[in-house]
């Protein structure tokens, strides 16, 4: 069973941004006021959807080619790679990782994005992959640009790639963003600053990884992702109430 029926360790909310982070203005009306109800895991939480490799196309993890029309996209060619592990350090195998981003100029291919920077005709901006048996993933893309957004008058998001990860149980479901080492916009970003623990925020910043770069072709960044771990105890807790 590989322990897939074990309950998850309680989420440490101190390393996640709370719901209400007023400097990120949209959170003000979209944050619950009542406390979350803590729930010991049942089958409904320890299980989750599984995805097969056959659902993923051969170019789905190659953003340089997966929307190429009459050439390749403009921008800084990079490899993004890393491991998906759980809090116990175990690789999370065969799990779906999805990612999306703006193009090199900070423009999203989305009907609601009206930023004046142009669309790149050869860049879609999304991809997906399934981790291997060790939890390893990689994809090839163009480094995204910063872009302005209506929060404060002069708000700019740092370059970032959005990630969506599943894990083996629905309670591990996570969406996050990866940032790039050395980006001076990071220290101004209300989304990153919403994370109460600065050491946790640093883990969203992917270091340059020259060892994985392909000479004369592309640079590389390493982004490791940690999902909730499952309890390791061999003994059931004594039940309280019903």
């Amino acid at each position: 069973m590989n322990g897939l029926d074990r309950e998850f360790l309680q989420r440490d909310r101190g390393i996640h941004p709370p719901a209400f982070t007023p400097d990120y203005k949209t959170s003000v009306l979209r944050s619950p006021r009542a406390a979350l109800i803590s729930l010991e895991n049942s089958l409904s939480e320890v299980t989750g959807p599984t995805f097969g490799r056959s659902e993923i196309g051969p170019l789905d993890n190659d953003l340089i080619l997966n929307y190429a029309r009459d050439g390749e996209p403009i921008g800084e060619r990079i490899l993004v790679h890393g491991h998906v592990r759980d809090e116990n350090g175990r690789g999370v195998p065969h799990t779906l990782v999805e990612f999306w981003q703006a193009n090199a100029g900070g423009r999203y291919r989305h009907r609601n994005d009206r930023y004046l920077a142009p669309i790149d005709p050869n860049f879609g901006g999304c991809g997906r992959t399934i981790t291997d048996e060790n939890g390893y993933y990689y994809f090839r893309t163009i480094k995204p640009g910063a872009y302005p957004w209506r929060n404060f008058l002069n708000s700019w998001r740092p370059a970032h790639i959005h990630f969506s990860v599943f894990g083996s149980g629905f309670a591990q479901r996570l969406i996050t963003q990866m940032y790039f080492e050395g980006d001076p916009l990071i220290r101004h970003d209300p989304m990153i600053l919403g994370i109460p623990d600065p050491a946790a925020a640093v883990r969203l910043i992917a270091p340059l990884d020259l060892s994985a770069a392909l000479p004369l072709d592309m640079l590389a960044y390493q982004f490791d992702i940690v999902l909730r771990g499952r309890q390791q105890t061999l003994f059931e807790n004594k039940l309280q109430g019903n």
Binding site: R85, W100, H110, N112, C126, T176, M191, R203
Partner: peptide, 23 residues
């Protein structure tokens, strides 16, 4: 297995307004 977790969960961030692009 260690008694306390070895690693800490990756912090969450908002999905943003353009979540549809990826998902």
């Amino acid at each position: 297995q260690p008694l306390s977790p070895r690693l800490k969960e990756t912090p969450s961030q908002t999905a943003g307004p353009y979540v549809h692009i990826g998902l």
